[in-house]
Design a protein around this nucleic acid. Structure first.
Length: 430
DNA sequence: TCTGGGGTCCTAGGACCC
DNA sequence: TCTGGGGTCCTAGGACCC
């Protein structure tokens, strides 16, 4: 038995905790560069703003109906997330943190699920200020679905029985009631069924979750894939996806970003790639891994009517490493090899591939001297940047103020770091 | 003017082996 | 005239997730 605890409109809810005047108003949080809406309050959803809607297309709503759009503030959301996860963990003996706003809880041996769910939900709301929904089911897919129902029943009364609002335990429903709920839910809401597969299922005459739950798993596998078969079995109550209580090490680490403005020259591109490789190297050291290959890419905007350019290359590393200088060097060499002048580039990135734990090394013949061990230097680099802020110490090719302006993100409306910066802590007046 | 970033898993098909 | 059978490994691309 599993629960899924999920913060409602998480980024928007975090902002509202510290700016209560935003309660009840249509609110969106924007992606990097203030590009598009990645979180929407219920009021914003009611205005018809879709997930990922470009900001320039919804901007007029600010004037017309008082929409508020904020830049994203990840230090704030990350910290609020930690607090929420700590409280959600009390729901059961095991927890898998699935995303910044969601965690699965293993419920083996936990009695009185719905009542406990309500207690946890109330506590999160009271202590953290973030409303959330809790879904409970025999499998992770059913818990996800239950979570969707808990939120929808809360937001749109009448769509589902009122007692399923906020906390929904599908496992406690009588069979007929469960069928009714599944029949009232579009198959696109199922975890693992996206746009493409959803279309194909509809073309095959299936429309509701109940239709999918009644599929023959063998057919699901033959006509689609083992992925859909697993989803069907999960909907039927057979658990196929286990709880991962320890997060597995990443198999690749990416740092990619759109530029604040278009870039055509090599120099700023090299600066961007240096920065991305440096950040990726730091993430790599954090998880205690080394990379054997590095991929670097750059491309133009597919939304513009410009000559298009999109190239990537993989640079093998002489030895697996997590050394910033080595990774930056490889990334810059790769970028120089694919760069062509004359294109209006909008994005570049670095992806570290072929990762392995730092202790596992391939021995080799002693044909050339071992490079100097620079792990202590890297540890010092990380410690300084951790204490005094990202970018305090960096590789020289990262550049200085000049070209940097081109690359820095547009973030014109970012809130303060209320919970992670002493200077931004709010003062309550008596 | 203006459209995010970071991941995972699966599959098909090519290269290669005996 | 005519050209096997069985397997592994790797990669690119598709699909999905938040």
């Amino acid at each position: 038995m599993f629960a899924l605890v999920d913060g409602n409109n998480f980024y928007c809810s975090c902002e509202r905790v510290f700016q209560p005047r935003l309660q009840g108003r249509p609110l969106v949080v924007l992606s990097n560069n203030d590009g598009c809406a990645i979180a929407r309050s219920n009021e914003a959803k009611d205005l018809g703003i879709s997930m990922g809607a470009p900001y320039f297309k919804i901007r007029h709503l600010e004037r017309e109906v008082g929409l508020v759009a904020l830049s994203s503030n990840y230090p704030l959301y990350g910290d609020m997330s930690n607090r929420m996860m700590t409280l959600a963990a009390a729901m059961g003996p095991t927890q898998e943190i699935y995303s910044i706003d969601e965690s699965f809880i293993g419920l083996d041996g936990v009695p009185d699920l719905a009542r406990r769910g309500h207690a946890i939900r109330d506590r999160i709301h009271r202590w953290i200020g973030v409303p959330c929904g809790i879904g409970i089911g025999r499998t992770k897919t059913l818990a996800k679905l239950a979570n969707h129902i808990a939120k929808t029943a809360d937001r749109k009364p009448g769509t589902y029985p009122a007692e399923l609002a906020k906390v929904c335990n599908l496992a406690a429903l009588p069979a007929q009631d469960l069928d009714d709920v599944l029949a009232a839910t579009d198959l696109g809401e199922v975890w693992g069924i996206g746009r493409r597969i959803g279309e194909q299922l509809r073309a095959a005459g299936l429309h509701t979750v109940l239709d999918v739950a009644r599929m023959d798993p063998v057919v699901a596998r033959r006509r689609w894939s083992v992925v859909l078969e697993r989803t069907v079995r999960e909907l039927q109550g057979q658990s196929c996806i286990a709880l991962e209580d320890a997060p597995p090490a990443k198999k690749e680490i990416a740092c990619t970003r759109s530029f604040g403005q278009v870039i055509t020259d090599l120099d700023p591109l090299i600066e961007a790639v240096t920065e991305h490789a440096s950040r990726a190297a730091q993430k790599l050291r954090q998880q205690g891994s080394v990379a054997a290959q590095l991929q670097v890419f750059a491309h133009t905007s597919p939304h513009r009517d410009d000559p298009q350019f999109s190239k990537a290359t993989i640079v093998p590393l002489r030895r697996p490493t997590s050394d910033t200088a080595a990774l930056v060097h490889a990334a810059c060499a790769g970028m120089r090899s694919i760069y062509e002048p004359g294109y209006r580039l909008i994005k570049a990135g670095v992806i570290l591939l072929d990762l392995s734990p730092v202790g596992v090394v391939q021995q080799e013949l002693d044909l050339e001297p071992e490079p100097r061990d620079r792990s202590r230097l890297m540890a010092a680099l990380d410690a300084v940047n951790d204490k005094y802020g990202r970018g305090t110490l960096k590789v020289a090719s990262a550049g200085t103020a000049g070209a940097r302006r081109q690359m820095t993100m547009k973030q014109s409306r970012r809130s303060a770091d209320y919970t992670t910066d002493w200077d931004a802590i709010m003062i309550a007046s008596a």
